[in-house]
């Protein structure tokens, strides 16, 4: 900002921005607060914001009733597993597209993106039946496989845009220095692309963590991640809002915190590098 802005104007903008931001954030904050209330206080009218008896009881009960850590572990396995598998397949492909482009490269990228446009519901039935026949229903392996495929186009795209920013000269230098293709990727490309790869991983973990179509439809209990764990609280078996809040808080906290620390990379990643 080259120009100075009067303090009064600045304060006005600040007040407005904070009001809107807090309004947007409020449902999350409210969930967080409610998770520490007793069930009675949770539905009290008028609602109390800070002055209630804080309790950790809800967290205990949630863990006991529906085994939070079991589902959390599933979420971790699914999101990190699919990200890792996706990277393994996508890094070579993105290398090829960025550093050895052909006339078809753009078309292949567009085609990959277009597979994301394919509504998952269009292939739900066969995938469900195949998974049933292959005994992959309600297994972590099955979910990892599905989420890898679901997010692969995004991983390839993101890596491609990051790799394209790496000067080809440096890879050629490695080749002149006697590096094989594998060594070139391992010792030169990958370390240079670490920020890009990190932000790709991050976004992918978040997308996989929050993916709710496949995780809900292909799991029952054993492999159910947090999305399904929370959905089980939707059944109208009375108003257990405090417990619901505790469960929600636990389901979103890991990814929320991860996202806060990396929001810049996250946003840049999601635009496929189209917005700097």
């Amino acid at each position: 900002m080259a120009r100075t802005v009067s303090t009064r104007r600045r304060l006005a903008f600040t007040a407005l921005a904070w009001t809107i931001a807090l309004a947007l954030f409020f449902p999350i904050l409210w969930t967080f607060l409610t998770s520490f209330k007793s069930e009675g206080a949770a539905i009290a009218n008028p609602p109390s914001f800070l002055f209630f008896d804080w309790t950790l009881e809800n967290y205990h009960e949630v863990q006991e009733r529906s085994n939070y850590f079991h589902h959390m572990w599933n979420s971790v396995v699914i999101s990190f597993g699919s990200t890792f598998l996706g990277l393994l397949i996508a890094v070579p492909a993105a290398w090829a597209m960025a550093f050895s482009p052909t006339k078809n490269t753009k078309n292949i990228l567009m085609w990959m993106l277009s597979t994301k446009m394919l509504p998952p519901v269009g292939v739900l039935v066969p995938i469900y039946l195949l998974f049933r026949d292959w005994a992959l229903l309600d297994t972590l392996a099955g979910l990892v496989l599905v989420l890898t495929m679901v997010n692969l186009p995004i991983i390839v795209w993101m890596l491609y845009t990051y790799f394209k920013e790496i000067p080809g000269d440096i890879l050629e230098a490695a080749r002149m220095d006697g590096a094989s293709l594998g060594q070139e990727i391992l010792y030169v490309l990958t370390p240079m692309a670490v920020p890009g790869i990190a932000s790709t991983c991050l976004l992918n973990v978040i997308l996989a963590w929050n993916e709710a179509f496949w995780t809900l439809n292909l799991t029952a209990a054993k492999a159910a991640p947090l999305t399904a764990f929370i959905a089980s609280y939707s059944s109208p078996e009375g108003l257990f809002w405090a417990k619901l809040s505790a469960a929600s808080t636990m389901a979103i906290a890991p990814i929320l915190i991860l996202g806060w620390f990396s929001q810049r990379q996250l946003v840049r990643g999601l635009t496929f590098g189209a917005v700097k």
Binding site: L24, F25, P27, I28, T31, I206, W209, N210, A212, L216, L226, T227, A228, I230, A231, S234, S248, A251, I252, I255, L256, G259, W260, Q263, L266, V267
Partner: peptide, 10 residues
């Protein structure tokens, strides 16, 4: 940014 990070079921 927070709402974007919340899983849809939650």
């Amino acid at each position: 940014i927070s709402p974007f990070l919340i899983m849809p079921t939650v």
